[in-house]
Protein backbone atom coordinates (compact mmCIF):
# COMPACT_ATOMS: atom_id res chain seq x y z
CA UNK A 1 0.00 0.00 0.00
CA UNK A 2 1.41 3.42 -0.96
CA UNK A 3 2.51 5.88 1.73
CA UNK A 4 -0.62 7.92 1.08
CA UNK A 5 -1.76 8.74 4.64
CA UNK A 6 -5.44 8.66 3.73
CA UNK A 7 -5.16 5.20 2.17
CA UNK A 8 -3.17 4.11 5.25
CA UNK A 9 -5.95 5.37 7.50
CA UNK A 10 -8.55 3.53 5.43
CA UNK A 11 -6.48 0.37 5.53
CA UNK A 12 -6.26 0.72 9.30
CA UNK A 13 -10.05 0.87 9.64
CA UNK A 14 -10.53 -2.05 7.28
CA UNK A 15 -7.88 -4.20 8.98
CA UNK A 16 -8.86 -3.41 12.57
CA UNK A 17 -12.59 -3.96 12.24
CA UNK A 18 -14.12 -7.19 11.00
CA UNK A 19 -17.07 -5.45 9.32
CA UNK A 20 -16.80 -1.82 8.19
CA UNK A 21 -19.37 0.23 6.29
CA UNK A 22 -18.09 3.45 4.76
CA UNK A 23 -21.31 5.41 4.56
CA UNK A 24 -22.97 8.80 4.47
CA UNK A 25 -24.17 9.50 7.99
CA UNK A 26 -24.05 7.12 10.92
CA UNK A 27 -25.66 3.73 11.54
CA UNK A 28 -28.16 5.44 13.83
CA UNK A 29 -28.74 8.32 11.43
CA UNK A 30 -27.91 7.36 7.83
CA UNK A 31 -28.05 10.38 5.53
CA UNK A 32 -28.47 8.68 2.16
CA UNK A 33 -30.93 6.10 0.90
CA UNK A 34 -28.27 3.68 -0.26
CA UNK A 35 -26.37 3.89 3.01
CA UNK A 36 -29.52 3.26 5.00
CA UNK A 37 -30.35 0.17 2.89
CA UNK A 38 -26.97 -1.29 3.82
CA UNK A 39 -27.43 -0.40 7.50
CA UNK A 40 -30.86 -2.06 7.40
CA UNK A 41 -29.45 -5.23 5.82
CA UNK A 42 -26.67 -5.48 8.41
CA UNK A 43 -29.04 -4.91 11.32
CA UNK A 44 -31.53 -7.46 9.94
CA UNK A 45 -28.69 -9.97 10.10
CA UNK A 46 -27.66 -8.81 13.58
CA UNK A 47 -24.19 -7.98 12.33
CA UNK A 48 -22.15 -5.63 14.51
CA UNK A 49 -20.15 -3.32 12.34
CA UNK A 50 -18.22 -0.07 12.37
CA UNK A 51 -19.81 2.80 10.45
CA UNK A 52 -17.38 5.35 9.02
CA UNK A 53 -19.17 8.61 8.18
CA UNK A 54 -17.51 9.93 5.02
CA UNK A 55 -19.51 13.15 5.30
CA UNK A 56 -17.32 14.08 8.24
CA UNK A 57 -14.08 13.33 6.42
CA UNK A 58 -13.72 14.61 2.87
CA UNK A 59 -10.35 12.92 2.43
CA UNK A 60 -11.75 9.50 3.28
CA UNK A 61 -14.80 10.20 1.12
CA UNK A 62 -12.56 10.50 -1.93
CA UNK A 63 -9.79 8.18 -0.75
CA UNK A 64 -12.13 5.23 -0.32
CA UNK A 65 -13.06 5.41 -4.01
CA UNK A 66 -9.42 5.08 -5.01
CA UNK A 67 -8.78 2.43 -2.35
CA UNK A 68 -11.34 0.05 -3.83
CA UNK A 69 -11.56 1.44 -7.39
CA UNK A 70 -15.27 1.91 -6.68
CA UNK A 71 -16.87 5.28 -7.46
CA UNK A 72 -19.69 5.43 -4.95
CA UNK A 73 -20.59 5.30 -1.27
CA UNK A 74 -21.58 3.16 0.68
CA UNK A 75 -18.89 0.51 0.60
CA UNK A 76 -18.93 -2.65 2.71
CA UNK A 77 -15.75 -4.41 3.84
CA UNK A 78 -15.59 -7.75 5.64
CA UNK A 79 -12.27 -8.93 7.09
CA UNK A 80 -10.39 -6.49 4.90
CA UNK A 81 -12.14 -7.47 1.69
CA UNK A 82 -14.35 -5.15 -0.35
CA UNK A 83 -17.75 -6.85 -0.68
CA UNK A 84 -19.58 -4.23 -2.69
CA UNK A 85 -21.79 -1.19 -2.71
CA UNK A 86 -25.52 -1.01 -2.06
CA UNK A 87 -26.61 -2.92 -5.19
CA UNK A 88 -24.35 -5.87 -4.55
CA UNK A 89 -25.04 -6.02 -0.79
CA UNK A 90 -28.79 -5.95 -1.44
CA UNK A 91 -28.55 -8.55 -4.24
CA UNK A 92 -26.48 -10.87 -2.01
CA UNK A 93 -28.88 -10.34 0.91
CA UNK A 94 -31.95 -11.12 -1.19
CA UNK A 95 -30.38 -14.27 -2.63
CA UNK A 96 -29.18 -15.50 0.78
CA UNK A 97 -25.58 -15.25 -0.39
CA UNK A 98 -24.73 -12.59 2.21
CA UNK A 99 -25.55 -14.85 5.17
CA UNK A 100 -23.41 -17.57 3.62
CA UNK A 101 -20.62 -15.06 3.05
CA UNK A 102 -20.65 -13.94 6.67
CA UNK A 103 -20.77 -17.54 7.90
CA UNK A 104 -17.81 -18.60 5.76
CA UNK A 105 -15.90 -15.59 7.08
CA UNK A 106 -16.67 -16.51 10.69
CA UNK A 107 -18.92 -13.53 11.31
CA UNK A 108 -21.80 -14.25 13.66
CA UNK A 109 -25.26 -13.79 12.06
CA UNK A 110 -28.32 -13.35 14.30
CA UNK A 111 -31.44 -13.00 12.23
CA UNK A 112 -33.58 -10.24 13.71
CA UNK A 113 -36.85 -12.10 13.00
CA UNK A 114 -36.19 -15.64 11.84
CA UNK A 115 -39.22 -16.91 9.91
Amino acid sequence: MSENPVLERIKGEVDENEVVLFMKGTPVFPQCGFSSVCVQVLSNLGISFKGVNVLEDGEVREGIKAYSNWPTIPQLYVKGEFVGGCDIVREMYESGELIEYFNTNGINVELANPE
Partner: peptide, 10 residues
Amino acid sequence: TRVQQHQMVY
Protein backbone atom coordinates in the same frame (compact mmCIF):
# COMPACT_ATOMS: atom_id res chain seq x y z
CA THR B 1 -17.02 -11.40 -9.72
CA ARG B 2 -20.00 -9.07 -9.30
CA VAL B 3 -17.67 -6.31 -8.12
CA GLN B 4 -15.52 -6.73 -11.24
CA GLN B 5 -18.60 -6.77 -13.48
CA HIS B 6 -19.88 -3.53 -11.98
CA GLN B 7 -16.39 -1.98 -12.22
CA MET B 8 -16.40 -2.78 -15.96
CA VAL B 9 -19.65 -0.85 -16.35
CA TYR B 10 -18.36 2.06 -14.27
